Computed example of a mutant assay.
Amino acid sequence: MPLETSVTTRPRLGFLGLGWIGRLRMRALADTGLAEIVALADPVADCLAEAGALAPGAARGSTLADVLDRGCDGVVIATPSALHAEQTIAALNSGVAVFCQKPLGRDADEAARAVAAAERADRLLGLDLCYRHTAAMQAIREIVQGGDIGEVFAADLVFHNAYGPDKPWFYDAAQSGGGCVMDLGVHLVDLALWVLAFPPVTNVSAQLFAGGRPLTARDQVEDYATVTLQLGSGAVVRIACSWNLSAGRDAVIEASFHGTQGGAAMHNRDGSFFDFAAYHHTGTARRLLAEPPDDWGGRALAEWARRLGQAEGHDPAAENFVQLSRIIDRIYAAALEGDRCR
């Protein structure tokens, strides 16, 4: 699935946060040639050194201020979640576009303030909702929105990770905003809403667990979740996600959409975090829509960089990031308060 690479300019970009995901995204962007990487910042010297090997001409520092001092057009943020909203708002207030790792904020208030800053500054705000950009999910969205499976009345989405995050801050709710729902479930909620053209969510119910026991306080971090979203159309979306589940493989990642005239489904192959196949189902028959290989990991960032190079400003569709955060908030409220969040 090639990206259009002709741009008006090559934007000057800085990268803030150069752990595994930050370096992975930086490498993918460098390979496209869509942007010039001019600044790198991370407080960890080893991370900065590894990133510097990928962009030897870039200036190095440890803070957002170090990146902004280089006159960047945009900054890519891949720091711990507690810093996302604050750093995004600061960059936007400085007149710099932002591409941020999810979540945009630990709650909807933080996300809304970040989107409001993008609107005020008229700068492009992107969020790394990377699974939208897999060939598998692109194909599913096309046939769902094209009416090929009729009216969608149900969807099931799953992301079970046989491992857990390797950074301690993920397990501190004050820093992460939550556990597997914030880390993995956010992708599943986003995919359901994105495929179905962002319908209203009328009811939310959820069960969250930590160490096999129901979550009892917001300062706990869940490692297993089941969620049901009732949509304004009457359709229902069921979501399950987890860390450290005995899944018999590295990961289980699936998304199925059930319509009145057929279905569409994607799944990861052989427990992979990266390889996905998608199918169009009609009765007992299925038609292949997409399969590996598919180098999708950097596409969300590359698309943002391409749009930035064409001098695009604020995109009103960023309001969808706030809607996503509101639903995540409602999931936690439903689980902890027994509230169906009407």
Rank of each mutant, 00 (worst) to 15 (best):
M137I: 07
A112P: 03
V144A: 14
E142T: 10
D128A: 09
K102M: 02
A85Y: 02
E142Q: 09
I143C: 15
A155D: 06
A136G: 11
G95A: 07
L157R: 03
G150V: 13
V158Y: 12
E110M: 10
R123L: 04
L104I: 06
D148K: 14
G95W: 02
A135H: 10
Y171K: 09
G150W: 12
D122L: 05
K167M: 06
L104Q: 08
D122T: 03
L129K: 15
Y171L: 09
A111C: 09
V98T: 03
Y171I: 09
I89Y: 06
E142L: 11
R113V: 00
F170T: 06
S94F: 11
S81K: 05
Y171E: 06
T88P: 04
N161Y: 12
G164L: 12
V152C: 11
A112F: 07
E151D: 12
G146Y: 12
L83K: 08
R141G: 13
Y163N: 14
D172R: 15
A112I: 00
R123S: 01
A121Y: 02
A154P: 03
F99K: 04
L127T: 01
T134Q: 11
V96S: 04
F170G: 06
N93H: 10
V144S: 08
R113I: 00
A116C: 11
P165I: 12
G105S: 04
L129E: 08
Q145H: 07
I143G: 09
T134W: 06
P103M: 12
Q145I: 06
L104N: 05
A116E: 13
H160I: 11
T79R: 01
L83F: 08
P103C: 10
I149G: 10
V98M: 05
P103H: 09
H84V: 04
L104P: 07
E86N: 05
A173M: 00
R113A: 05
A174E: 15
